[in-house]
Design a binder for these strands. Structure first.
Length: 533
DNA sequence: GAACACAGCG
DNA sequence: ACGCTGTGTTCT
């Protein structure tokens, strides 16, 4: 076996050689997102597919996932990393550095088969989910989650290389304007009400309780709560309204500042994506975080000249997953008949015809439907209904509603009951998503939420894998520019937009219906110049 | 530097 | 109520 170490700064011609043979290969490496991002960004090089020992280690549930830690655990060897701290940018690489680089490659040859075996060994019994894909065939992978995540490494690397175009001029203008408006508002507040730092929860609490005599709830650490939810009782008070307004202004200002700070010469931001950023398998984004952009600000994300954005999302995906997960017939049936699930819930819980359900009742049912995903409790429902959907409930009413809800949907009742039982007996719930992603939950709320949120993550990632493969097969020039839990945003040449939009919709629904067998999955797709109007 | 509070998104 | 990240103040 020959290991080749190439210093691309010393040998620019080597790039041509790499371009020749790297793209026809499957790559094995540790944290390949990094290699793919750079090779794809600079040279347009990408692998057929990948096996990533870092991702493998994360999926196997290890706490430490550095190459060093993984080598120690699975090979029982010590990997010397001191050379990593040496100077790699100065001049020609030393022989020690070259040897270090070669050793990193050599060790992967031995690590790879062991991790592959471990992943296959923890494949769940759900054989119907055996996915026949290139990753599976090339590496002999049988674990569906590993198949999806390994294919996803390439997609995450390219996603980071692609970046997302923003409207630089508009952003900079807004930044300037908001800065002035913020300063003006703060000074105005102080001259009216005295010296209070609106961004100090402590000072705001002091001001509201001592000076205005308001009664406010406590935070979990026993301090006076001043969040918008707690202040909503007193929103008619002009000082309170002003605090809320200024804080909101500040939030938008911070977000714009974060974005502007990350704009590169070409007018794009290049966020970092953690492929497995949450315990549930969801991704996370940072620098800038493009997964929590306020909806009003999304219009500043746009397609560059001659291109279009395609924005697609799964509709009501978590509710669909939940009903399939617990096999709740009435809900499944409603989805199969294409009905409005919140109206159906309202009708069943309140015992009235679907036509008689009011707007407010539908909102209430929505709170209940989503509440169940988070492990519903009457108190929780009461607060969620009030602040999330503007529906007023007493605790007694909430209790009664929860009771009726579980009567209408007995499988959810049984599911929650069995979760509580398992927690009582074992102190934890060890479970799997519908694609076989493993998790351990130690609270009831986590146990109710993880399989649903986790299956949502499975679904999005499978959709991305399928879509990317299909787009390549059809020869479309697609750049995925953002992924937001149940949403895919991509950039395509104008003339391909309609065709790609259709392909994206089909890919998402195909992926969804591969994982959900009974409940139909639907994706909504829009072609647009901006992310959201 | 850690802990807390707050607020944006799904 | 579940999952994240960024910014600010305050405490150690």
């Amino acid at each position: 076996m020959t290991n080749l170490v190439v210093d691309l700064f010393e040998c620019p011609a080597c790039v041509e050689i790499l371009k020749q043979f790297l793209p026809q290969k499957a790559w094995v490496g540790h944290n390949l997102k990094f290699d793919i991002k750079n090779l794809y960004y600079h040279y347009g090089i990408e692998p057929i597919t990948t096996f990533d020992t870092y991702i493998a280690s994360v999926l196997l549930g290890n706490e430490r996932n550095s190459l060093q830690a993984v080598v120690e655990k699975y090979l029982g060897e010590f990997l010397d990393k001191t050379e990593q701290l040496s100077n790699w940018g100065a001049s020609q690489l030393t022989s020690n550095q070259l040897e270090y680089a070669a050793k990193d490659v050599e060790i992967l040859r031995r690590l790879f088969p062991i991790l592959l075996k471990e992943l296959n060994a923890q494949t769940s019994q759900r054989k119907e989910f055996l996915l026949k894909t290139r990753v599976a065939e090339i590496f002999g992978l049988e674990n569906p989650i590993a198949i999806v995540e390994m294919a996803m490494v390439k997609e995450t690397g390219k996603l980071e290389a692609n970046g997302f175009t923003v409207d630089v001029e508009t952003l900079k203008g807004m930044l300037k304007k908001l800065k002035l408006e913020l300063q003006r508002s703060q000074i105005n507040f102080v001259t009216k009400y005295g010296k209070v730092d609106i961004f100090s929860p402590k000072q705001v609490a002091q001001f509201l309780t001592k000076r205005l005599g308001l009664k406010l709830p406590s935070t979990k650490r026993g301090n006076v709560a001043t969040d918008d939810k707690s202040l909503s009782e007193y929103i008619d008070n002009p000082a309170v309204a002003e605090i809320v307004r200024i804080r909101k202004l500040k939030k938008v200002y911070d977000k714009i500042r974060e974005l502007v700070g990350h704009i590169r010469e070409n007018g794009r931001v290049y966020p970092e994506f953690k492929q497995i950023g949450a315990k549930t398998g969801r991704m996370s984004a940072s620098e800038p975080n493009v997964q929590n952009i306020p909806r009003d600000l999304r219009k500043i994300f746009k397609a560059p000249e001659g291109k279009k954005l395609i924005v697609a999302d799964f509709s009501q995906i978590e509710l669909r997953i939940a009903s399939e997960y617990v096999n709740e017939e009435k809900m499944i049936e409603a989805f199969q008949n294409g009905e409005d699930m919140h109206v159906v819930t309202a009708s069943l819980v309140l015992g009235k015809g679907r036509e008689e359900v009011t707007k407010e009742e539908r909102q209430l049912a929505k709170a209940m439907n989503y509440g169940l995903i988070y492990g519903i409790s009457p108190k929780g429902l009461m607060e969620y209904a009030k602040f999330g959907y503007g529906v007023d409930l007493s605790l007694e009413e909430a209790k009664d509603l929860v009771k009726r809800f579980f009567k209408a949907f007995p499988r959810f009742y049984e599911w929650h009951k069995s979760l509580r039982e398992t927690l009582r007996e074992k102190g934890k719930v060890e479970g799997e998503t519908l694609l076989g992603r493993k998790y351990i939950a130690e609270t009831f709320q986590d146990a109710a939420n993880y399989p649903i949120q986790g299956t949502g993550a499975d679904l999005l990632k499978l959709a991305v894998d399928i879509f990317s493969y299909q787009a390549q097969q059809w020869g479309f020039e697609v750049k995925i520019v953002n992924l937001v839990h149940d949403e895919i945003v991509c950039e395509v040449p104008q003339e391909q937009a309609q065709e790609v939009a259709q392909l994206l919709k089909e890919s998402m629904e195909y992926a969804g219906n591969l994982i959900l067998k009974k409940v139909p999955v639907e994706a909504e797709v829009k072609v647009s110049q901006v992310w959201e109007k």
